[in-house]
Amino acid sequence: MSETTNIALPSMRVSYEQGSLTESDLASNWHEQLQLWLDQATGAGLPEPNAMVLATSDPEGRPSSRTVLAKGLDERGLVFFTNYTSAKSHDLMATRYASATFPWFAMQRQAHVRGVVEKVGPDETARYWAGRPRGSQLGAWASPQSRVVSGRTSLESALHKVERQFADADRVPVPPHWGGWRIRPEEVEFWQGRRDRMHDRLRFRLGRDGWEVQRIAP
């Protein structure tokens, strides 16, 4: 590792001065506030504004994280779709808990969602599936997600086999091993960077009497 690299990391620093977040700025509930920030990130032209870092853990508590795309948002929770045989799905089936972070770096914002998970119903999965590009549908059939494969050639061979299988089909059906997960939030935090690392952190937290808003120290 070069000396320049050793020096660069400790000295990398950004002063967050784009905005602030007060209690009066918040929408009346967490999902409207999250939708507002998603809309603003989209309007600002951020790449993949619905990308979120999904964190799970296995039964032994070993964490894993990866980026997925949010594909549903309402008062029930936050939805993404994946292979049910994937590593993330095995974690979710074992622990039934997840967290997700939207890292909107260009806007000096983050949003964190934490809560229990549940599988999305087949009708909701089918509605989303119908709007996916055909290539993505075929890829979901072909890929044994998270499993070790012998090489790129084996993946391409699997895709070609699926292409032949559904060549005469007007519609590609939903694979039995594929569907959605919904995170039903217990906490949703909205983080706005501020100068001198005195960031604004406001959290919707679900308690016995419903949702409450809390300010958290940075």
Rank of each mutant, 00 (worst) to 15 (best):
A44N: 09
S57A: 15
N50M: 08
W30E: 07
G43D: 14
F80C: 00
Q40P: 02
A55H: 07
P63Q: 10
A44F: 01
P59Y: 09
V68A: 02
T67M: 14
R66M: 02
L46C: 10
H31Y: 15
S65G: 15
D74F: 00
S64A: 15
L69A: 06
G45S: 06
W37T: 01
G61N: 07
F81H: 06
H90F: 10
L73A: 12
L38E: 02
A70Y: 00
L54P: 04
L26F: 13
G77S: 02
G61V: 05
S86R: 05
T67K: 03
A27T: 03
D91V: 12
T82A: 01
L78M: 07
H31N: 11
L36Q: 15
K71T: 07
R62T: 14
D74K: 11
V68H: 01
A55E: 09
D25F: 07
Q40H: 10
D39R: 11
D39N: 13
L92P: 09
R66C: 03
G72H: 03
S86H: 07
A27K: 14
G77D: 02
D91K: 06
L73P: 10
V79E: 08
K88C: 03
Q40I: 07
N50K: 10
E32H: 11
T42D: 08
R66E: 00
E60Q: 15
Q33T: 11
A70S: 12
K88T: 02
L73H: 10
L38V: 04
L34N: 01
E75G: 08
V79M: 09
R96P: 12
M52N: 03
Q35L: 12
T42M: 08
A27C: 13
T85K: 13
G45C: 05
K88D: 03
F81I: 00
S64Y: 15
D58C: 06
A87V: 11
T95Y: 11
N83M: 05
E75D: 13
K71R: 12
L46G: 10
N50L: 07
S64P: 10
P63Y: 15
S86C: 06
T42C: 04
V53E: 08
W37V: 00
Y84E: 03
S86M: 06
H31Q: 12
L92M: 07
L69T: 08
N83P: 08
P47W: 04
L38Y: 00
M52H: 04
N83S: 10
Q35N: 14
D74V: 05
R96A: 13
Y84I: 09
E32Y: 02
V53L: 09
Q35C: 07
L34H: 04
Q40G: 07
T95V: 15
E75P: 00
V68E: 04
P47A: 02
A27M: 12
A94F: 05
D39K: 09
Q33K: 13
R62L: 14
P63I: 12
